[in-house]
Design a protein around this nucleic acid. Structure first.
Lengths: 204, 204
DNA sequence: TGTTTCGGATACTATCGGTATCCGAGTTCC
DNA sequence: GGAACTCGGATACCGATAGTATCCGAAACA
């Protein structure tokens, strides 16, 4: 346990920095070129390391990408919650959320990565398990959020909040996937469908 | 131009048979193990040929998979049209369609392949272009179908048939992708969302 | 200061998509 | 009917890349 105040970086800190830098660079490359299109060597070199650094910080490509996605998810959730807790009425909140969706699905590099990585799960039980965990968590939080927002507006959904959450997430994923293929696809479909879902609710 | 009635197979016929057999075997393997999980060598050997046979019938793995997907699409479209032209009222048709969706999304090997292959498009302009062509065709036919069915029932959608088609397709894709990860996912969400979309229509 | 630990580098292997080349049966033309 | 040619499919090879085995040197420790 050194007390050398000069060397500001202990070994663990250095490794943490390395890991962070790798995730940072990998995030850019994965988003730009996709999962398959990004080799670990490219990531390592772009970060100023060798492939060995990747493997001593992650079990492999899958875990690296999972770490990248986790940083992305954090930001996305933040954005959604912000939209839905905006200090207006339900319509205003839906508008804010729709705007967020439009922005995120408009440049769909993120959803494309998400979908591509989900495909990897087919070959990797570990990825499948981790994604299911995150997915269930996401559905549960979304359902909670929907419940709160709808109750806040004095309504009661005809469909369960859980099902609404699944529908909206699926729609977002599917729309993102299609949009990443076809740039001309109209993304406003999401907002309209959401309104249709919420319209089928009665005042509590 | 031989008139030998005994040799039933000319060279072109043989090649067509080879191609057909390759697609057939590839379809099984792609559906079972996914795109990435299926090597061309496996396909060739399982079909009783060598990799050379694949490359003299297809430009590569992508074209082979596209051929496989085309055979699948043909069957799927048939199923959907059958459901929606069943000789009952709108509710009955929706029920038939919902049942079809439940069956197809329940064992989601097909949607998983679809989504995985869509991810390939990111690295391949050719795949992207071909998929966009098919996708637009599918949206257009679906919109037509919806238009006819809704008009048949004496209704008028609030949302455009085109947008409804995009929404339903996206939802199906997204739900299929999620379902292929999480076997416990409730697929009936699709039917409920579809009803919510159609409920937001007024009698013409 | 000698010893141990371990993060990261280097060298190597295996897999797989794709290319170049070859062979021989089927086709054509005289 | 036989010589010349065509081309579907086989074989051998290349390049990229995920993953593994091993090594090195500096930090941590006693």
């Amino acid at each position: 346990m050194s007390v050398d105040s000069e060397r500001s970086t202990t070994r663990a800190e250095r490794q943490a920095q390395t890991r962070e830098r790798l995730v940072e660079v990998a995030r850019e490359l994965f988003l730009a070129d996709g999962y398959a299109g990004t080799s670990l060597d490219k990531v390592a070199v772009a970060a100023g390391f060798s492939k060995g650094a990747v493997y001593s910080n992650f079990s492999g490509k899958e875990e690296l990408c999972m770490a990248v996605l986790d940083t992305i998810h954090e930001e996305q959730i933040e954005g959604v919650v912000a939209a839905f807790t905006a200090d207006t009425d339900l319509d205003g909140r839906i508008d804010a959320f729709a705007a967020w969706v439009r922005e995120k699905l408009g440049k769909p590099r993120w959803t494309a990565l998400e979908v591509e990585f989900a495909a990897v799960a087919r070959q990797s039980p570990w990825v499948a398990g981790e994604l299911v965990k995150r997915h269930r968590m996401l559905v549960a939080s979304s359902a909670d959020l929907i419940d709160r927002v709808v109750a806040d507006a004095g309504l009661r959904l005809d469909i369960s909040a859980h099902k609404a959450a699944v529908a909206l997430l699926s729609l977002g994923i599917g729309l993102g996937a299609m949009r990443s293929l076809d740039a001309e696809l109209d993304v406003d479909v999401f907002a309209e469908t959401m309104r249709a879902l919420l319209r089928s609710s009665t005042s509590a």
